[in-house]
Design a protein around this nucleic acid. Structure first.
Lengths: 409, 409
DNA sequence: GGGTTTGTGTCAAGAGTGTGAACGAACTAT
DNA sequence: ATAGTTCGTTCACACTCTTGACACAAACCC
């Protein structure tokens, strides 16, 4: 089979893809509606759907599931519709998120439902080869928990610290001692996995998680800001994730200068935002040991704490105002540990933004991240990144379905 | 005809589009090569090409034109190839650029060759309705010069000052007295033109011109900076023109703050870049009347002039460093009148950028705009914008070709 | 309750598209 | 001049989608 040149087969594949994509996007549909959406005849829909059901990619919705899917079929005249939906269990997406001392793994089905999620700690000085095997072991463990094997995966995404060069795919240096620096993560994991491997920066993956399931849902121009040890960001431009620029070095909001007259930063600039609004900077200014002390003091209304958080927010707001004038996002999501301070940091951001940005760009919504800010966010974002690649995903599913239907015959 | 639902026709159309796109991208190809590139059989290529030739969209390259197209067919064995190329005369693209006191029009063929280009002046207080008729008259005049009629157009793009709201398509307010404020330019021109009408900000269109034909050729992540009366910009993200954000307010680099402690700006911010690096600001600081005086003094080596230009460059460089850390463009193009000062302003930009941006993002090329910086740039960019929409363009050509081939029968 | 309306899903006939194999054409190398 | 190579075209064939017709199922109308 698979004489793929055949452009008549390509037509059928194209139509199959359209049908499946429509089902994944709209949830559950009946054949006639599907035909209208995709611009093909009901006949064609029926024949293709029969194949897809045979391949296990699509399933008929029966009985209670109809109500569950939130369809009211009773409102209209005519024959009852046979509803169809993409089979969430036709495949799985996995994400692995490597931070300095931890690996977190996350496996979801195609609807984004979490099947398994867990983490493991690693020593700071662990070389990347060892991290890789640890990550793969974690992945296999999660898969077995979910009663799946690697064949079920439609893709895997890997989160690492630091920038990823767009052309070479190699991770660039960021912090000294970055374990993955100089490694082509996609290629290395590709040796062990038979599916596409995507790579992204940790913070950008958190952003993807928010775009997909959190505060960024439905928006097309979003900036996610991660106020953590460092300050990273993820950017959604017209519905597409920004790739990080020519050498993947983009998104470093933490080293945008909030004050050109400020203190020098190791990066070469002066008055970088990290000096005012990173978790480290705030803790240091208040001599707190960790975020919980900070939050306790904030809740108690400690003046110094409120002031430092306000100043952090104001500096952040000034930087955001500049970004708004450049890109005019419709929504700004603030995440990272410091976002747990809530309005104490968000309100100063909003006020400064409204004061400093231009009339047309200043009304961006500034909202807190919705997803849990723990270690899981990056890994779930990685899985989300896989699910976002609808095209590849659909193609993978169809290839798999073709195999299965052939086996069946 | 044109029962467009027919998905078999869709297949043929898809293949026709692929063939035509390949021809437009690669220049000139023979049938076998075309088949290899598009993944279809030579048979199919032959039949489709026959139709396209009939429709006038594609033409056979004969005689001297072969050498002209830069093909050496002699190097290989086998039968001589019949080369094909997209017919540049199969359609035309037009751009109209409205500035405060001028309209400029530009008409090109499909290869981007200028067919006609001219301008007209209008009074500052002319309402938009009158500007519209002036523009259309100019367009018709240019078309008649080029011996074309409106049917030949595959699209028109309009440049206006100010932001364009993404959802509504309405021009937002910018300068007081902006003639187009509140107008849906695309819809209004659409009443008079039977082709797609695109709308863009003046500066962004200059950027498109540079991306397409000037200093931005071949790059995928580019920032164009227009240092003129105001400071605007155009942004290319991974090969796509940035649309200006949620409300079209993006790109306002001039109101990014270069110094939070600087003087207040009417926009609400402090120390905006326009205060240091706009043409007006520089002229005012040196008490010059126009750009020519400035350039003369610069060439004469006047210390004050050199200093002010250096400071303008340094402020610009600081702002660009922040943008580089956010988006990591591979190339930055500096245009607008002030760019005529050349290295006197570019070198300080480069030096500041190298000092202030992060290691990975600081090596963006900073180059001067290549195209003439006169009134023509915006209009030619508008035409380029039309040519960039390859999909729509190809679709329009095929529709036209189908008509013509039917007429022929 | 029965007839009508509306809309769904499937079947057979028909039209259109792309492919593969085979063939003639044209050019290079020996 | 001959062999080898590649190109462009022709024809039978296989495949896909559509159209029109029909059976079916629910809701509406009287």
């Amino acid at each position: 089979m698979a004489k793929d040149t055949g452009s008549l087969r390509a037509l059928r594949r194209t139509n199959s893809e359209r049908l499946l994509s429509a089902l994944m996007e709209h949830g559950a549909l009946h054949r006639a509606e599907l035909a209208r959406i995709c611009g093909v005849s009901r006949t064609t829909v029926s024949t293709i759907v029969a194949d897809l059901v045979m391949g296990g990619v699509v399933m008929e919705v029966v009985g209670d599931q109809v109500a569950e899917a939130g369809i009211d079929a009773s409102e209209v005249d005519g024959r009852a519709r046979g509803f169809l939906q993409a089979n969430p269990a036709a495949g799985a997406a996995a994400g692995l998120d490597f931070t300095l001392e931890r690996v977190w793994g996350h496996v979801t089905d195609l609807s984004g439902t979490t099947l398994a999620s867990d983490g493991a700690t690693v020593a700071r000085d662990t070389p990347w080869q060892e991290r890789l095997t640890t990550g793969l072991a974690l992945l296999d463990e999660l898969l077995s928990k979910a009663a799946l094997d690697r064949d079920a995966l439609v893709g895997v995404a890997i989160g690492v610290p630091g920038p990823i060069d767009l052309q070479s795919g190699v991770v660039g240096p960021s912090l000294p001692g970055q374990a993955w620096a100089g490694v082509n993560v996609s290629a290395e994991f590709g040796r062990h996995l038979a599916v596409p491997v995507l790579v992204g920066n940790n913070t950008r993956l958190e952003a993807v998680a928010e775009f997909t399931w959190g505060a960024g849902k439905g928006a097309r121009d979003v900036l996610y800001l991660g106020l953590s040890t460092g300050i990273g960001s993820g950017l959604l431009v017209d519905g597409n994730l920004h790739h990080g620029g020519a050498r993947g070095g983009g998104g470093e909001v933490g080293h945008i200068s909030a004050d050109p007259a400020g203190a020098p930063c190791p990066c070469g600039n002066r008055g970088c935002l990290v000096q005012y609004a990173s978790l480290n900077a705030v803790l240091k200014a208040l001599s707190f040991g960790d975020i919980d002390e900070l939050l306790a003091a904030a809740e108690a209304g400690d003046d110094d704490t409120v002031r430092v958080l306000r100043e952090a927010g104001e500096h952040t707001g000034r930087v955001l105002a500049n970004i708004c004038n450049l890109l005019n996002p419709e929504r700004i999501i603030v995440g990272g540990e410091l976002a747990r301070a809530g309005d104490l940091v968000l309100e100063p951001i909003r006020a400064t933004l409204r004061r400093s940005a231009m009339a047309l760009t200043r009304d961006a919504d500034v909202v807190a991240a919705e997803l849990d800010l723990g270690a899981r966010a990056g890994a779930s974002g990685a899985a989300a990144l896989v699910l976002r690649q609808t095209d590849q995903l659909v193609a993978a599913l169809l290839a798999g379905a073709e195999l299965k239907s052939n086996e069946a015959v």
